[in-house]
Simulated assay, not measured.
Amino acid sequence: MKYRRTPVPHPDPGSPWTTSPSLPSGSPQTSQRHEQAPARLVAAAGVWYDEVGNLPAELPLRAAPGSPLALPEGGTATHGVDGLTVVDAEVLAEYEHPHFGRWPAITTRRHGAGHVTCVGTVPGRGTARALAEWLSSAPSSGWGTLPASVTVTTGNCPDGRRAHVVHDWSWQEAAVRAPGDLTDVLDGSVIPVGTSVGLGAWDVRVFVTS
């Protein structure tokens, strides 16, 4: 069997690449690979790994000295660890653990017009939020500061409109400000820009914009 090696292009300005962890599944069947992971991205990412481990409980994380990533108090790693070995990447976050602390949790490296960020674990909610804010300091969706329990996911519809899925992940009601004129997909009502959008406990609302 022949494999075709595809060159790694340079990330576009303002569009950083982020690699997700490759965690062990506990399966007796494994895949053997002849190249270091992350495949074809070692030079661009500035890290490699050949060891992974499961986490029976969450691990606390801390920002590396001089890191531009502002981790929240109580930031955690979950599920597993990729043993990232740094070549020439910048370490953003570290594990607070006597064994796993030998490896960085999150790294980044300039590549072409952008940068490649490697996340060697499944980040806890607070860590994921901090990482997303660092990767994209200016929200492209237009949504501003959100309550801690609220997330917004956006995407393009086949007809060219933009979909906005708003979740409240708590037992408390929440409210956010509409970043534009929103149309509720369930009842067709229009919420003008700047209007407060109410969310019930564990609520989800879906809107579209032109």
Rank of each mutant, 00 (worst) to 15 (best):
M1K: 00
R5N: 08
T6E: 12
P7R: 08
V8I: 05
P11Q: 13
D12V: 04
G14A: 03
G14Y: 02
S15A: 12
W17T: 07
T18P: 00
T18L: 13
T18F: 01
T19R: 06
P21H: 07
S22P: 14
S22M: 15
L23C: 02
L23M: 01
L23F: 01
P24S: 02
S25W: 02
G26A: 09
G26D: 07
T30A: 12
T30H: 13
Q32F: 07
Q32D: 09
Q32S: 10
E35P: 00
A37W: 15
P38Y: 08
P38M: 09
A43Q: 14
A44K: 03
V47H: 03
W48V: 02
Y49A: 07
D50F: 14
D50H: 14
D50Y: 14
V52T: 10
V52F: 00
G53Q: 14
N54E: 15
N54C: 14
L55N: 03
L55W: 05
P56S: 13
L61R: 06
A63C: 06
A64C: 10
L69E: 02
L69I: 02
A70H: 07
L71I: 06
P72V: 04
P72Y: 01
E73M: 00
G74F: 01
T78R: 11
H79S: 12
V86M: 09
V87I: 14
E90W: 00
V91I: 15
E94H: 02
Y95K: 03
E96L: 12
E96S: 10
P98N: 12
G101C: 08
G101S: 09
A105K: 01
I106E: 00
T108S: 15
H111Q: 07
H111Y: 12
A113L: 15
A113N: 15
H115V: 10
V119L: 02
V122M: 14
V122D: 12
P123R: 01
G124I: 00
R125L: 12
T127M: 06
T127P: 10
R129C: 11
A130Q: 04
A132S: 14
A132T: 11
L135P: 00
S136N: 12
S136T: 11
S137V: 00
A138Y: 11
P139S: 07
P147W: 04
A148L: 11
A148T: 09
V150Y: 01
T151F: 09
T151S: 14
V152Q: 09
N156E: 15
C157H: 08
C157M: 13
D159Q: 06
G160Q: 05
A163V: 15
V166G: 11
S170R: 05
Q172R: 15
A175I: 11
V176R: 04
V176G: 01
D181R: 13
D184N: 13
D184F: 05
V185M: 06
V185Y: 06
D187V: 03
D187R: 04
G188F: 06
G188L: 03
G188E: 05
V190N: 09
V190I: 10
V190W: 05
V190S: 09
I191Q: 10
I191L: 13
P192L: 01
G194F: 03
S196P: 10
S196A: 15
V197M: 04
L199V: 09
G200T: 06
G200S: 06
V204G: 09
R205C: 08
F207Y: 12
V208G: 10
T209W: 10
T209A: 14
